[in-house]
């Protein structure tokens, strides 16, 4: 009997006063180790592997805008020497031509920008040019989105539901072709096939 009494008198509680301190310590650890920044960059789709005997698809010359960059960073767009800052306007003109001028594309769906560089070009410059091409497409899409929906493309895309058709992306598909690299130059790796 006295044993039972003693037991009930004792309080069976965990002290929770230090709980906040423990949680704070953990919190600070995770605050320090966390990396919130999401990875961002230029998204590209590589062309699929070449099959042995499939001929390359036929593209009419006028639908193709060839952007060539040599190893010192000089840019040649459809055979004309250009500054990097001029590329954007040229791509916009090419894609939104709708068959008006004879040496630009027939319609946005057929328009292709082909991007090719020499092997010696530094990657920083490569991204710079690719960024210009990509920016041109974003500019076109923003313009068209403002026409049809009154908002820029990112807002428009955010408003789309799961099954809604992205009319802007359908109208102006991004077709940047990373051209086949020249085989054998440098010869650092085994060529495909």
């Amino acid at each position: 009997m006295p044993l039972l009494q003693r037991r009930t008198s004792r309080e069976a509680e965990i002290p929770t006063a230090s709980m906040a301190d423990i949680a704070f310590l953990l919190l600070i650890f995770f605050l320090v180790t966390t990396t919130i920044n999401v990875d961002s960059g230029i998204y590209m789709q590589l062309p699929p592997k070449l099959e042995e005997d499939t001929p390359p698809p036929e593209i009419r010359q006028r639908n193709l805008l060839a952007v060539l960059v040599n190893s010192t960073g000089d840019v040649l767009v459809d055979g004309e020497f250009m500054q990097i800052s001029q590329i954007r306007g040229e791509v916009v003109r090419h894609v939104t031509n709708e068959g008006r001028l004879p040496n630009y594309s027939e319609n946005p769906d057929l328009a292709i920008v082909s991007f090719k560089t020499e092997r010696g070009l530094p990657y920083g410059r490569y991204i710079e040019v690719l960024d210009e091409i990509k920016s041109a497409y974003i500019e076109i899409r923003d313009d068209y989105s403002r026409q049809v929906a009154g908002v820029d493309y990112t807002t428009y895309k955010g408003q789309l539901g799961e099954d809604d058709e992205d009319a802007v992306a359908t109208k102006y598909p991004i077709k940047i072709s990373l051209a086949e690299p020249d085989p054998g130059v440098g010869g650092a790796a085994a060529p495909a096939g």
Binding site: Y123, G124, A189
Partner: peptide
């Protein structure tokens, strides 16, 4: 890296 030559990048992409 921004100074890597694109040749290596092409090999990797292949």
């Amino acid at each position: 890296d921004r100074e890597v030559e694109t040749g290596l990048l092409y090999d990797v992409q292949q």
